[in-house]
Design a protein around this nucleic acid. Structure first.
Lengths: 212, 212
DNA sequence: GACAATCCTGACGATTTCGTCAAGTTTTAT
DNA sequence: ATAAAACTTGACGAAATCGTCAGGATTGTC
């Protein structure tokens, strides 16, 4: 029984047990997120992933049972980042500071990991079929908490009376757009490639619009 | 030479010359946009398109030379709609009215043609590889005109001094988001499916935020 | 240094997919 | 009615893709 699942050991301790595995899995995931984001799930072949990782195809299958397994690992990873950022929004913080941090972190992280951001956007665009029930559930809970924080601010008169749910949607939509629809943004700003300065402008404009 | 390109006659007169062709092409395009939007270019097979259209596969190839040809036709179609909406923004109009019309039309059309909207979003997400040079060029021009209209309003003191380019990006981002990322929006609003009322709320909230 | 666990890999089979073709049928124009 | 044009279709070939497998090479451990 030479063949052994690439999944068993995943959450085990985590120390340096399996350095080779760690290195190769990381390489595979790095290449995959880039390919998936530009060519989609079906448009990406294991051969390409193998080639990009400098491994033979069969070796990729040694680490991941199937193409879907790679995709799922990536989803889980991105998902964690997504909801971690929301933790900036807490009722006891100052609204302006909290929202400023949140918007800036969102923009910065989607700028630095554009492929990852597009990858996740693509998944949502297709209806989020790879999201587990638990992940959806979690997403709802975290969102509700954030909305409650905003409502709290409103009730104390520290924030304009907006519908927090539409409010967050607007933030997500905007921050994502800069990273995910780069061709449109670049064309609009009449530049060939988006730079950090463009993202900084974006953050400023968004916050300006938000804070009334 | 029985085989004859499906493209030659396209722009000819347009009257009822070729009723069968018109009907079948329409059916194929309808099915395709739905499939492409949920499964992507590579994830969609001609067999599925044929099945969905109630035609045998070979017949689909009679009307469209290749899968890419179908995709390109759809791109062109959606592209036209996209820039047509922008024509609401003209300097001689009242800013509030013009922007109100624009936002409402964008939201309503992406609600009614959600598949089409997602299809286009998917294309942009992947870097817009199917967009022709001419289309990109046109996009830039139309956008610039719209920005000039806003600048005109600002110079006359009829509108707050925002950067019009970021301003439009914000509008696009938000209006698209409701249609394209339905799973997130539905989860946030805690409904199972988005209804017209949700889109109306969205329009109201967006316009409220925009008009300061 | 021996033994097990982990890692690597070329070759292979089954299936799917694109796109073609040649021979039919139906529609249209005269 | 007849001929040409437009349309339909089952069967097919070539290529690509997923995932497997059996056995060889490395690494780690006692």
């Amino acid at each position: 029984m030479a063949r052994q699942s690439g999944d068993e050991r995943r959450k085990s301790g985590g120390d340096n047990e399996g350095r080779i595995r760690a290195r190769n899995e990381r390489k595979i995931l790095e290449v995959s997120v880039r390919l998936f984001s530009t060519k989609g799930f079906d448009g990406t072949t294991i051969s390409e992933i193998a080639e990009g990782s400098g491994l033979p195809k069969a070796n990729v299958y040694y680490y991941f049972q199937t193409k879907a397994a790679i995709y799922e690992r990536l989803i889980a990873k991105v998902f964690d980042d997504w909801d971690a950022a929301l933790r900036h929004i807490r009722p006891e913080r100052d609204p302006r500071e909290a929202l400023g941090d949140y918007v800036r972190e969102k923009l910065e992280s989607s700028r630095r990991n554009a492929a990852q951001s597009r990858f996740f956007a693509g998944e949502l665009l297709r209806g989020g079929k790879f999201l587990t029930r638990g992940q959806r559930q979690h997403m709802r809970e975290v969102t509700r908490e954030a909305c409650e924080a905003v409502e709290h601010w409103i009730s104390e008169g520290r924030f304009p009376a907006v519908d927090p749910r539409h409010f967050f949607i607007m933030i997500w939509a905007t921050t994502q757009f800069y990273a995910d629809f780069a061709p449109v943004v670049a064309a609009t700003l009449e530049v060939s490639r988006l730079r950090k300065a463009d993202f900084d402008d974006a953050a400023e404009q968004i916050l300006k619009a938000i804070n009334f």
